[in-house]
Design a protein around this nucleic acid. Structure first.
Lengths: 133, 133, 133, 133
DNA sequence: GTGGTCTAGACCACA
DNA sequence: GTGGTCTAGACCACT
């Protein structure tokens, strides 16, 4: 994973999002132990306090729970993970729709734009596959 | 327009986005004069320096041009406006797609999610219209 | 206010509780600006980062809202303050009752203990007043 | 008994409180032998070192005494138990009262709040009893 | 060794 | 000047 140091997004949020997506995609299983502050700090190339903040925020979201002296673990509560997953999806959809409307597009135009974009994406993927043959 | 003071988004960006969408939606026409710093400041309830920054950033995008002693005007160059419109749409689509993929969704799942969201949106709007009758 | 450095309670929590009680008791009014990080840091004799954490946590509780570049303000939303007040009262009552039960007291015994304690407290206050005459 | 891993309270204190209340409620009698480190560790699901610390702290309070090679026993000295009981009650009352005052309540208001809470508690219990019939 | 708190000081973005 | 992020390093409590 590459961290963008120059961008607006603070790096603790970048790391947090990276970890969340890794969790939601199943790279870490419920109950798994996350790397310690210092290990994760070394891995991402940041100070360990930055990792501490990431873990604290994720704890607040209910994604992980941390046991002093032991480590930080993915929550066993799968429903919390699912809920988080759903809410993040909803949020993305809402944001996308709202911002497209702000640009002056009607719902129908949004749908058409998205469909066109999606088809172009698929085309592109097919071409890439062919070029690999 | 309501400004969110508590969010991460700086208020100059909020105002800027608001003005851009107003321009792109045709509320202001090419060549129109934008309100002065102080007027816009009063309108939005912010310091006029904040407005100055907004105009400066929009000038950098080529959307407006500032003529010293006269004011700030929307560019006559319609193609610049169009280009800006298109690029913002592209950006939104790309961002949405990329972030959905980060959550672990495949392109097909993204499309299905969006379609479901869109249908729900339409339904909702129909119901609201009925309730107004 | 005096900070206990030697106790278990982290000082950022001590300061936070102190500020919350000052708010709830009306020492600060809704909309008031809290002292800046550095000022509060000097006042309490702690590092400004510690104050930053206090304000962040209070922001999460909805007690204050912070506007970058301007300062941290008590929320205008009085209902949020009231809700916080009530919930803290409830929490105290629940905790007290639960812990007394853990010690083996029945509800009736708890009530009697509390009443006796209360009467003793009143007596004591009366005596103090007399001694001041 | 359920241990809260995620809370601020260290687990050795949670276990210690649990054991003390069990003693004070008479579950263990004076002179009884407490379970060994490892047994108690298994029972609570924690490392036996944690239990060792619990016993050590309780020994410091004079509640138990550890005899090398034999085990840990509840003190025969009933007055020590009683004293501990009383002091814990006092502490709870003091803490409750002080914290309510910090929230801005006068002694009278505290009494009223407590009475209301107590009555609600009784009501609730009655309703539960009825529903069981 | 792991998390939790705190400090001192730095740099940045915002108003 | 104010809040926001980050670092480097320290000390502590817990397992």
């Amino acid at each position: 994973m590459k961290i963008e140091y120059d961008t607006k997004q603070p790096i603790y949020l970048q790391i947090m999002q990276n970890m969340i997506t890794r969790i939601l995609r199943g790279e870490f299983k419920p109950g798994d132990k996350l790397p310690s502050w210092v290990d994760a700090g070394l891995e991402y190339g940041v100070n360990h306090n930055t990792i501490a903040r990431v873990y604290m925020e994720m704890g607040r979201l209910g994604l992980v729970e941390t046991r002093r002296g032991e480590g930080t673990f993915i929550t066993q509560d799968k429903s919390a993970l699912l809920k988080c997953h759903e809410s993040m999806k909803e949020e993305l959809l809402n944001k996308f729709f709202a911002e497209m409307q702000l640009l002056g597009y009607s719902p129908d135009e949004i749908f058409q734009s998205f469909e066109a974009y999606f088809r172009a994406k698929i085309q592109e993927r097919l071409l890439n596959q062919e070029s690999l043959l």
